[in-house]
Structure formats: structure tokens, C-alpha cells
Amino acid sequence: MLAAAPAAVAQAPYPAKPIRLVVPFSAGSATDILARIIGTKMSEGGTYQVIVDNRPGAGGTLGATGVAKAAPDGYTLILVSVGHAINATLYPRLAYDTVKDFAPVSLVATVPNVLVVNAGSKYKSVHDLVTAARAAPGKLNFDSAGSGSSTHLSGEMFRMQAGIDIVHIPYKGTGEALTDVMAGRGDMMFAPTVSAMPFVRQGKLRALAVTTARRSSSLPDIPTVAESGLPGYAFDSWFGILAPAGTPKEIVDTLNAEIGKALAAPDVRERLAAQGAEPKRSSPQEFASYIQAEIGKLAPVIRQSGALAGQ
């Protein structure tokens, strides 16, 4: 009887206990909001109980380190953002390997940043900004939520592809940066839609373009940067779920299917749209390839941005 016990445990149906979904940022962040939307939907049927566990710190690397070292049994997951790919270059001495120490489960959503200026600004288009920057190198600035953030790197990519000289002004967060743009102290910002659009609707900011390759279904009237004069420009703030490397394929596939069901639910799609997010399910293999492609695409932008200074 004793010899049979381990086999019985090994064959227990999955999931047999709550699943911990780590969010490597604080409560109220975009990552946290998405985690709670998806976790709540997955828990509704009773088969899954998903508990969101906020582990903020060190730009998301603290939570990722813990998950990389967790047991690969399907009971510890992490919802990462584009910052996961950024950190692979931004932090040369990570305690984990961004690719080898995780098993991708599924891409979950993409959220465009939106290029905004003060509502009273004389700049009414991307063309206006680029023309002004070329006429007066180093005179225009762009605010960001901090060095190495997606708001910084989408601006750096804009600077590089437009061939212009604009000055980066890092802040300690999105709110502070947007406040200065609204006050006219900052010329522009590539801000998360969830943060910027309420002020656009209030008439405090003007939205010029979104950073994604295609127009956002949530913001169909706002053109992309690419169609506004910079063909090929695309920067996605994306989110996805990872498990520790070594998690059995059958568990990864089961989780992928359950996440797909959650993302297909009308109420989830409605809640994601309210955040400016586009649901984007993928296969585990597609997500793995996507992460590697993002690391390769963003690495030269990070190196040329100056974000690595001092490391």
C-alpha cells in the first residue's frame, strides 16, 4: 500500500490545489489588472482557483527570479510584460535566464502606448513633431515613466527611426510624467493607453498616434505612428503567462487552453477593451518565438538609449 502512494499522488488530476499567479509589479499596475481579470475568469468554473500574488521590485526581476526557481508543477505561474524582454538586455547580471528558465504558456494581450501632447500644443500630428525636431535639434523633449521602461523605449525607437534629436526626460512613474505634459512642461510622451486616454477624453491631452503596427480596436480613430510617416515603426506593450522551465507539456497545454477560454469570454474581452488591451492568445511555441524576437528587436534600442549607463 505504501509503495502505491507516490503513483497515486503523481496521477492526481490537475489542478489539485490553488494556482499562484505571480505579478512582478504592485497592485493597481496594468499587469496586476490583467492578472486579476484573467485569474477571476479562470476561477469561475470551480476547477481552477487562481490566486494573484504581487511580488514587486527591481523592475519585475524580483518576482521573475522567484518563479524561475519554483517547482515546475503548474502551481506557480507569472504574468510578465514586455519588460521581461527588456530586462534581458537592461540587466546583464540577472539571477535567471530570460529564455531557458521559463516555459511559455500563452501570450495574453497587447496594449499600445499612445503618443500624446498637451491639449493646447501647436503639434497636431506626428509630422508636426518630426518637422519641428528636425528644425531645432535637441529642443524638444519626451517624458517617460523611467529609464528602460516601455514608455522610454517606444520614444527612443521613434527618435532613432525618425532620425531626430529629442531629449529624454525620465520620471519616477507614468503619473508624474503625464502631469508635466499636461502642464506644458513636457513636449510629448508615449504613454500607456490606460493611463493617458482618460485625460484625452477630458480634453487635457491630445492623442496623435498609437505605437502598435495596426490601429487599436479600442481607439479606431487614432492613427498608428507607422501610417503617420514612419513606416515599419511598431512597439507593443504585451503581456503573457510563463511557468518555470521543466513544467510538463500536458500541464502547459491544459493551462493554454484554459487561458484561451478566458480570453474568448465576452465579459473578459469587454474588460480588456476598457483597459485599451487587445486579447492575444498564442500557442506556447508561438509565445516562445515571440519573446526571443522581442529580445532581439529591443536590445539595440536599449543599448543606444543610454539606459545601460552605470551597470
Results as ranks from 00 to 15, higher is better:
residue 93 R to F: 06
residue 137 P to D: 04
residue 66 G to R: 01
residue 290 Y to T: 07
residue 148 G to P: 05
residue 86 I to F: 15
residue 235 F to P: 01
residue 299 A to G: 05
residue 6 P to I: 04
residue 2 L to H: 10
residue 83 G to H: 04
residue 182 M to V: 06
residue 305 S to I: 13
residue 296 G to P: 00
residue 153 L to P: 00
residue 128 D to Y: 01
residue 79 L to I: 15
residue 268 V to P: 02
residue 33 I to D: 09
residue 118 N to D: 14
residue 182 M to W: 03
residue 114 V to T: 11
residue 279 P to F: 06
residue 159 R to Y: 02
residue 263 L to K: 08
residue 159 R to S: 09
residue 276 G to V: 08
residue 278 E to A: 14
residue 104 P to C: 13
residue 106 S to Q: 07
residue 124 K to N: 13
residue 181 V to F: 11
residue 155 G to M: 11
residue 69 K to V: 02
residue 210 V to L: 09
residue 266 P to D: 08
residue 197 M to K: 01
residue 211 T to K: 00
residue 31 T to L: 05
residue 26 S to R: 09
residue 72 P to V: 04
residue 71 A to F: 00
residue 235 F to S: 06
residue 202 Q to S: 12
residue 191 A to V: 09
residue 74 G to Q: 03
residue 247 T to M: 10
residue 3 A to R: 14
residue 250 E to Y: 12
residue 275 Q to H: 14
residue 130 V to C: 03
residue 35 A to Q: 07
residue 288 A to L: 13
residue 101 D to N: 15
residue 53 D to K: 10
residue 225 V to I: 15
residue 214 R to A: 15
residue 164 I to S: 11
residue 193 T to V: 14
residue 116 V to L: 12
residue 125 S to W: 06
residue 242 L to H: 09
residue 159 R to P: 05
residue 160 M to T: 11
residue 174 T to Q: 12
residue 270 E to W: 03
residue 178 L to Q: 05
residue 219 L to E: 13
residue 65 T to E: 12
residue 31 T to F: 01
residue 186 G to H: 07
residue 263 L to H: 02
residue 154 S to A: 15
residue 120 G to T: 03
residue 291 I to R: 02
residue 198 P to Q: 10
residue 85 A to W: 00
residue 153 L to K: 08
residue 10 A to R: 15
residue 223 P to W: 07
residue 66 G to L: 11
residue 258 E to C: 07
residue 195 S to W: 08
residue 126 V to D: 05
residue 127 H to F: 10
residue 26 S to C: 06
residue 200 V to H: 09
residue 289 S to P: 01
residue 195 S to Q: 13
residue 298 L to F: 07
residue 278 E to I: 08
residue 180 D to N: 13
residue 97 D to L: 02
residue 202 Q to H: 08
residue 78 I to N: 00
residue 92 P to R: 12
residue 281 R to C: 06
residue 98 T to F: 03
residue 293 A to Y: 05
residue 120 G to K: 11
residue 188 M to S: 10
residue 246 G to F: 10
